[in-house]
Structure formats: C-alpha cells, structure tokens
C-alpha cells in the first residue's frame, strides 16, 4: 500500500500545483504509515525528477512515451491507473487543476475508487476517511467520506502550504505498454493566453474591472503586478469588451482562484465575481463607491479613486520591496 501522486510538468519543470500535491501526498502517506511515490514524465532530467524528494516523494516512477507529450485524458488515465496497480497504490492524488479535472474522475471510475474533487485539507481518519472541500461556489464547505478501499483525491491548487525537507527521491522507470487505441485526441494547436505567472498558481493577484474606464489605463495595474510579482486578473465585462484577454476573467463563468492576496480595483463585487475569488486568503478592495458590495467581502478597503490611489500604492509597494531585501 502506498500513496501515488500524479506529478505533472511543463517545459521540463514540475508545476507549483504539482509540488503542492506531492507535499500533500507525503502527509497523507505519513498519516497512513506508508510512502509517497510520484509518477512523472520520463523525458524530464534526472535532477528535476529527484527534486521531488524535497517535497516528500521517497520514489519517483517514470513513464516514457512519445505520444504523452500532448495531453490526452484517456491515455493519461490509462498510464496512471496502470502505475497505481504496479506500485500497489491505494490512494492516488492529483492537483485538481485543469488537467487533474480531466484525468482524476476517469482514474477514479476505472478503479471504482471514491473521489473527493477539490480537497482543501488533509483527510481525517478518526472515523472513516473524511476530507473537506469547498462547495456552492465558495459559499460553503462539505466533508466527504470516501467509503472505498481505493481512494482518489483532487487537491485544490493553492490550498495547501508546501512543506520541504532536505532529501532526494530515487528514480525508477516503469514499463507500461500503452495500447494505440488509448490515444484518442489529436492536438492541432496550443495557444498561451496568460502572462508569465499562471493565474491559477499565483499567490498574489492584482485584478481590475470596469472602474478602470478603458484598456489604455491598465499600465498601472500591470505595474503593480510587476512590483509584487503578481498575476493579473479582471472582471467579466472587461474581458467581454476585449479590454483584457479572456484568460484573465475570474468568477462564476471564468477561473476560480484562491491566492493569498487578491487586490480588486474598480470592481463592484457582484456575486458572480465573488464566486471565483472569495476563497482568497486576504482581499483588498479599492473603489470610489463606499457602498460597493465588494467591501463586505474585503479584509482591507480603500475608498478612493483608482487613478489617484493606485500610483501612490505602487510607490509604497516599490519602497517596501526595496527595503525588504
């Protein structure tokens, strides 16, 4: 019995959400008195693979196949299910990011394993195997008990702090034959739509809405993001009228994020917007209207004109950054 974590990578590196999933997997393994194994792409460099030891993997098993370079939910779930069997793993963990949402349910159904889709805490094993997850678009939580011996957990990105140790993982190749019919999707094109910091991974997010008046005024928003090392986001209307790219749109119909800090500038705080951001740890709202609903969901607020406040705040952030090193 061991815990297997699907360790996804892009451009030769593990994603932050992957590191979180491995770190979480290590703690689930400790709870169950077993080891945490990570499953990774065999095309990665040896030291990148071994680096998963730092977040708690005792072993990294790899699979290599030319066709795995492109994401295919069916083929990936085949590989992961096989790997789970070969490593005798009863708990399989994914980051519940875009690809996790595609693959984890398939793996769970194939193994007839109960899935908690969007876990935000470690399992409580005092009475069953109970895991907390967010429901009702951030307005509630539910505790799910997994009743099956095999279990699949999809961990919500940014919900679990990384714990690092000084260790390297051993690396082992797994021999898995992938039948040709498992590959079902032909990728024609991939398009990058966000900046350097992935919005769903970002710990700090600077977001703005219709209060900014026009796309030409986003310079100060981008500047704030740059000073802080934050990702940028926006409200839906702003994406709909093409002031900002769609990849930045957060809310009920856009991305759901839960950064440590969400700064909302010139956004009213409609319930559909809040649905995507209300799980952020700290929310700062800057708005001219003291009645803006967003202030009810905020931790810190400035009632003021973005065109005056933001440049001043940028100056203050810059000073803080200069002194903090």
């Amino acid at each position: 019995m061991s815990v297997l974590v699907f360790a996804e990578s892009t451009n030769g590196k593990f994603k932050k959400s992957t590191l979180e999933a491995v770190s979480y997997g290590k703690q689930v393994a400790t709870l169950l008195g077993t080891d945490c194994i990570a499953l990774a792409d065999g095309a990665l460099e040896a030291n990148e693979l071994a680096s998963l030891g730092k977040v708690g993997a005792s072993k990294v098993v790899t699979v290599k196949h030319d066709n795995l370079a492109h994401f295919d939910a069916k083929a990936y779930s085949y590989v992961i299910t096989e790997a789970a069997n070969k490593t005798n793993s009863d708990v399989i963990i994914f980051s519940y990011n875009v690809s996790g949402k595609a693959v984890a349910p398939i793996v769970a159904a194939k193994l007839q394993a109960g899935l908690v889709a969007g876990a935000i805490a470690l399992p409580d094993t005092s009475n069953g195997f109970v895991i907390k997850k967010g429901t009702h678009s951030g307005k509630a939580f539910a505790y799910y008990n997994i009743k099956t011996a095999k279990k699949v957990i999809g961990l919500t990105p940014n919900s679990f702090p990384l714990q690092t140790i000084d260790a390297t993982a051993s690396v082992e190749t797994l021999d898995i034959n992938i039948p040709a019919e498992q590959f079902s999707v032909t990728v024609k094109e991939t398009v990058k739509t966000t900046g350097d910091i992935l919005l769903t991974d970002a710990e700090l997010v600077v977001s703005a809405g219709r209060g900014m008046k026009g796309p030409e005024n986003w310079g100060m928003i981008e500047e704030m993001a740059k000073i802080l090392g934050a990702a940028t986001a926006c409200s839906r209307p702003v994406a709909d009228i093409h002031w900002r790219p769609h990849g930045e749109h957060v809310g009920q119909t856009g991305l759901t994020i839960r950064p440590n800090l969400y700064i909302a500038i010139g956004i009213s705080g409609a319930i559909q917007h809040l649905a995507g951001v209300n799980q952020s740890k700290t929310i700062v709202v800057i708005n001219t209207d003291k009645e803006a609903p967003f202030f009810k969901a905020a931790d810190y607020g400035i009632i003021g004109d973005a065109f005056e406040v933001v440049p001043k705040l940028n100056e203050a952030f810059r000073k803080y950054k200069a002194n903090s090193h």
């Binding site: 505790y143 009743k147 810190y300 005056e308």
Partner: peptide
C-alpha cells in the same frame, strides 16, 4: 455502488469586517 457520502456541511467563517485605510495613507 455509492462511493462517497457527505457527512457534514459548514459555512465559511464570517469576515470580521473590512478595515478601511485612508487613501492618503497607503
């Protein structure tokens, strides 16, 4: 088969209220 069950729900802790900061004191 039924593989999972919800044993309990919870509402998020209420925000303790927004701390307002003067625009002149960012």
């Amino acid at each position: 088969e039924v593989l999972t069950e919800i044993v309990k729900y919870e509402l998020p802790a209420e925000k303790t209220g927004c701390k307002f900061i003067s625009p002149d004191n960012v």
